[in-house]
């Protein structure tokens, strides 16, 4: 059987699209690249959050590829103001809704630049003041919209257009900022990391955050095929390896205390993750002792994460994901 025998008419398709058994907050036709992790993450977030929300979106890929006037991919009230003020825009929406006595939840969407760097102050203010806002950071570890420049979320040794490797440098010199700890230090009720590779876990966290009255924060590791230099078809594979190597710990904090983590059953070597991505290709240069040292360094960072966040599953049957990535017939796992 192949597509030549497909009998689905455009009308049936559109009807089917309208009647999907999930809330579609982000519609097709957006201009994200092939295999975009951020587009997927945004769809999953809106799907879990449901229709009664209002979104403040920072400048960035997500904003650009969803709203080329006169079109919009959003099916939710959505606003893009500027790059650095998303926390404050969201806070304003929340204050207004509160004053109007409406229960609508406010979501703030920003990339890592709009969260870790330029948007950090307004995020901090929003968190400290206790606004009932769920701030979602789509972390793709560089300024992708402007052409892959380094951000404070860019991991150590990664190549970006502003951290190119050369005879005197091996990519980004500094470490990826631990934004989750910083965010949690605002005494907020809930802060978590998630990955597009684990949609059930991601949606569970969104729903958890939606229930909490007060500021919450979720950082979603979202691969960028273009910026990281991998095949779009591998976005999930890459994201999954980031978790399985320990380089991106998937954890949950409540009032600064760690209350949950996605355990790793068999940690994979970091090279499994790095070798798939062009941004780390200089680390695989034959005969370069610096490359060997950097690889060892990154492995040490992963090992440290695993130890620090206690990611090794305990017991005989530690699952790498609490079963979050296990399929079963009928799709019930996605409930």
């Amino acid at each position: 059987m192949n597509e030549d025998t497909q009998t689905v008419t455009p009308e049936t398709l559109m009807q089917l699209r309208k009647n999907q058994p999930r809330f579609e907050g982000l519609e097709s036709g957006h201009r994200a690249c092939l295999g975009c992790g951020e587009a997927l993450a945004a769809r999953l977030v809106t799907e879990a959050a449901g229709p009664d929300v209002m979104i403040a979106n920072a400048t960035g890929c997500l904003e650009i590829f969803t709203t080329p006037w006169p079109e919009s991919a959003w099916r939710l009230p959505w606003m893009h103001s500027l790059f650095e003020n998303t926390g404050a825009i969201a806070a304003g929406m929340e204050a207004a809704l509160k004053a109007q006595g409406k229960p609508t939840k406010v979501l703030a969407f920003a990339g890592d630049g709009g969260t870790f760097d330029i948007g950090f102050q307004s995020l901090s203010g929003m968190l400290e003041r206790g606004h009932n806002v769920l701030f979602v950071c789509f972390d793709n570890e560089a300024y992708m919209n402007t052409g892959i420049q380094s951000s404070s979320s860019t991991p150590h040794a990664a190549m970006t257009t502003t951290s190119p490797p050369g005879s005197a440098r091996m990519g980004k010199q500094n470490l990826k900022k631990d934004i989750l700890s910083i965010v949690a230090a605002h005494h907020i009720p809930y802060a978590a990391t998630a990955s597009v590779a684990y949609p059930s876990d991601l949606r569970k966290k969104i729903r958890r955050a939606m229930e909490i009255e007060g500021p919450t924060f979720i950082q979603i590791h979202s691969p960028c095929p273009l910026g990281w230099g991998h095949d779009g078809a591998d976005s999930i594979k890459v994201a999954r390896l980031a978790v399985q190597t320990g380089l991106f710990p998937v954890i949950e904090l409540e009032s600064r205390e760690m209350i949950g983590s996605m355990p790793i059953r068999n940690p994979k070597p970091v090279t499994d993750y790095l070798v798939l991505q062009q941004r780390f290709r200089h680390l695989f240069q034959q005969g370069d002792v610096r490359a060997i040292e950097e690889l060892a360094h990154i492995q040490a960072l992963a090992d440290h994460n695993i130890k620090h966040f206690k990611l090794r599953g305990e017991g005989m049957d530690a699952q790498d994901s609490d079963g979050a990535d296990t399929v079963c017939r009928g799709g019930m796992r996605w409930a």
Binding site: A88, A90, A91, G92, M93, E94, A96, L97, S124, G125
Partner: peptide
Amino acid sequence: VESEFSAASLVLGAASAG
């Protein structure tokens, strides 16, 4: 708020929300 930047942004968000 924590800055004038956020003051203006906050009222922008609020006014946009009606």
